[in-house]
Amino acid sequence: MKEILWHGRGGQGVVVAAQILAEAAYLAGFKGVTSAPAFGPERRGSPVTASSRIAGEPVRTFSQIEQADVAIVLDDSLFKVVDILNRLKKEGIIIINTAAQPDQVGIEGCFEVATVDAVGIALKHHLIREGAPVFNTTILGAFARATGLVSLEHIERALEGKISRDAVARNFSTVKDAYEHTVLRQKAQS
């Protein structure tokens, strides 16, 4: 079973992205998928998390993830306020939305680091809503690239189940772009 923790801020679409990932993973053949927001009230702009589990068999555990296999960080300002690495397994994968390269984000230890400029990609494709770039779906491209757990095709089909055809095309173009422009740093420092 792979456990994934999403870190973002209220309003960035963390919960929806976790849902689309669950759909994509199910389409990829994983019988056990769960996706949940951190339980409780939510506020726009405050740090929020969501969690996903992906397994071959139906998931029987619903307790909170202690140490994830994969961390997805939608907002790199969270590193200052949330101890993200503390909840990531040693040798785990961390995917960060940032214009910086993996070696520039200051992550020590034996983590696999993947960076993608999801905001830049969303802006390039004019994926903007209420004046702000939409990049929660974009980052799924980086997830596919960094983990290999789901393919681009699965993400596209999962999007089709959630949003309109026109929106699928616009979102998916950013997913593909993110897949192609994700920069990976293997566990070089282990």
């Binding site: 669950a22 019988k31 998928v33 769960t34 996706s35 949940a36 339980f39 619903f62």
Partner: peptide
């Protein structure tokens, strides 16, 4: 059924 644990968790 358990609130949040099941009510807010998505699964197939």
């Amino acid at each position: 059924f358990d609130g949040f644990v099941l009510s807010h968790t998505m699964m197939p």
